[in-house]
């Protein structure tokens, strides 16, 4: 269970994020969390709720609102993913997602850095705990620096995730605050591919002291290509085609979005070793 001090700290983190996004013209929204169809993602197991599912992220609804002409949106809410439990994982966790029309993943990397800095300044006024500049490293560079296998080969061998967790992430830990970016195309089913190198997707992850905190990308806005990628995901892992989402995607212009693990940000702000320490109640405490 959370301490009084950390409950106050958590509130301050949330306030700071809200203030930051509002100042930048983002509109806060709250979309349904019980959904009849989710984005098909093979590695995420949803929780059934009657005929519906609990959202695994608010992405589907947020991008539909974006397609309906709302240019800057954010949402803070809970997401549900079955069987995810560990020092950094809860099956119900808090997430901040924000979307911006006309932006790409580079714009969001820079916005993410400013936002995270703002939070650290608000909660750790005498010691920001952050370097003066966040560094950046492509996935390809990180794999060649920290592993013996090129990233593309690791994907082909089905060994990307293990090498990432066992060898790359410990290396990133030593780099403080670092954006890992340009993921192999196979690992970003909703992201736009790089126009100059379609083997790479415009996706990034921010790691702070080895903790994966923010995932963002330039949105794939080609509904036809998105349908093809979903077809592959559904064949591999099941699920249904999100038709309403694909219909709205036809009207979506260039945009980028990112998701921040709110509980993990509070962990970093509180120097907590486990996610259990920064939520009101861990599943075992309820």
């Amino acid at each position: 269970m959370i301490s009084s001090a950390d409950l106050v700290l958590r509130n301050k983190v949330i306030d700071t994020l809200r203030g930051f996004l509002r100042r930048r013209g983002y509109l806060e929204v709250d979309t349904p969390i019980r959904l009849p169809v989710l984005i098909p993602e093979g590695n995420i197991e949803p929780v059934q709720s009657g005929e519906f599912f609990l959202q695994t992220s608010p992405e589907i609804c947020m991008k539909r609102l974006l397609a309906h002409g709302h240019d800057r949106l954010f949402q803070i809410g809970h997401c549900f993913r079955k069987n995810e439990r560990g020092r950094y994982h809860l099956p119900e966790f808090a997430m901040l997602e924000w979307y911006r029309a006309g932006a790409d993943y580079r714009d969001l990397m820079s916005e993410t850095e400013t936002m995270v800095r703002d939070v650290f300044r608000a909660v750790k006024p005498f010691n920001t705990g952050l370097p003066r500049r966040f560094s950046k490293i492509t996935v390809a560079e990180a794999f060649s620096r920290f592993t013996a296998t090129p990233a593309i080969d690791a994907v082909a061998a089905g060994d990307f995730d293990r090498l990432l967790v066992d060898e790359v992430e410990p290396g990133l830990k030593g780099m403080g605050s670092v954006f890992l970016y340009d993921y192999p195309a196979e690992l970003a089913s909703l992201a736009r591919l790089r126009p100059d190198d379609p083997r790479m997707a415009e996706r990034f992850e921010l790691y702070i002291n080895g903790v994966e905190l923010v995932n963002g990308f330039s949105e794939l806005t080609d509904a036809g290509e998105q349908r093809q990628r979903f077809t592959v995901e559904i064949a591999a892992g099941g699920g249904a085609m999100p038709e309403a989402f694909l219909a709205d995607l036809e009207n979506l212009g260039p945009a980028a979005g990112a998701a921040l693990g709110l509980d993990r940000l509070v962990m970093l702000a509180a120097d907590a070793a486990s996610i259990d320490r920064v939520v009101a109640f861990a599943p075992e405490d309820i």
Partner: peptide, 14 residues
């Protein structure tokens, strides 16, 4: 025992 799961990736059990 440590559970980990990179974003969009597989669950891994170290």
């Amino acid at each position: 025992f440590e559970f980990s799961k990179p974003g969009k990736g597989q669950s891994l059990y170290r």
